[in-house]
Design a protein around this nucleic acid. Sequence first.
DNA 1: TATTGTTATACTCTATAACTATA
DNA 2: TATAGTTATAGAGTATAACAATA
Lengths: 145, 145
Amino acid sequence: MPVVTTPERDLVALAHDLRIACMRISRRVRFEAAGEIAPHQFSVLARLAEQTRTPGELAAIEQVSPPSMTRTVGSLVDQGLVHRAADASDGRVVHLSLTPAGQALLKRERAQRDAWMAARLESLSARERELLRRATDLLGRVVER
Amino acid sequence: MPVVTTPERDLVALAHDLRIACMRISRRVRFEAAGEIAPHQFSVLARLAEQTRTPGELAAIEQVSPPSMTRTVGSLVDQGLVHRAADASDGRVVHLSLTPAGQALLKRERAQRDAWMAARLESLSARERELLRRATDLLGRVVER
DNA sequence: TATTGTTATACTCTATAACTATA
DNA sequence: TATAGTTATAGAGTATAACAATA
């Protein structure tokens, strides 16, 4: 029986294989380069590294309820990783930012994850790395909002 | 100031960007193609689709404690997605497998995830898809055990 | 009255320790 | 005595509902 190859079929097959590859890498990074804090805490630190945010903003970005974010932030504050600051003009608002310890921890975690990934790529040829370089740029472009 | 580019630096930069791209895709698949069951339940169904396994094997593979797996499996059994069977010769052992409903649910979930990914790739040219095809194969080879 | 954030309470997933059944 | 699995209990993370403070 001949294999019928249509563009649609190719696309779905590629989508499947690519998704599996990405999710497998993601899973193994989280498992094998697991660090000092939980994933949801890491995620919040990463958001706060971009810019100062309020609890409400973080809850929306991370798609959790405000009470959950209150709890997560509270834990990070207790660990000395995040700083709470009052707003100058609106007494309801809280501004959250990373402490130096929070910045240092985030940097360590990221280095650990990058090291895991780099170790997988070490055996590749220059040509293969160039292929992945271009594929990475393409992926970034394709999934951006 | 000239940019100094060493092979090591390139490798780490690629590892970082590639890791970020993969984890972002993984995250968005889980968020935006979220289905009827929780991620840890999905993961167990996927393992049981490969082959019949015992609770202890699943706990080891998923890196959770045996009691946690007992609970997860219990929930899946209650939902009619997984079947428990006694071992013929060893009364302590339990064999777990997917029910038809479990197989169907797993198939639906995977189709939903693939559809999300395929939608991102739709706008790509044939040349770009070929690039991703080769990158996907490379990734699979690089991270395999 | 609307908004921001927290507290009250409950449910789920996780873990360690203890227990049951079997080998 | 060791192994496979479950039950007992407790610790996080999450959710909805109710509350406090502020605009």
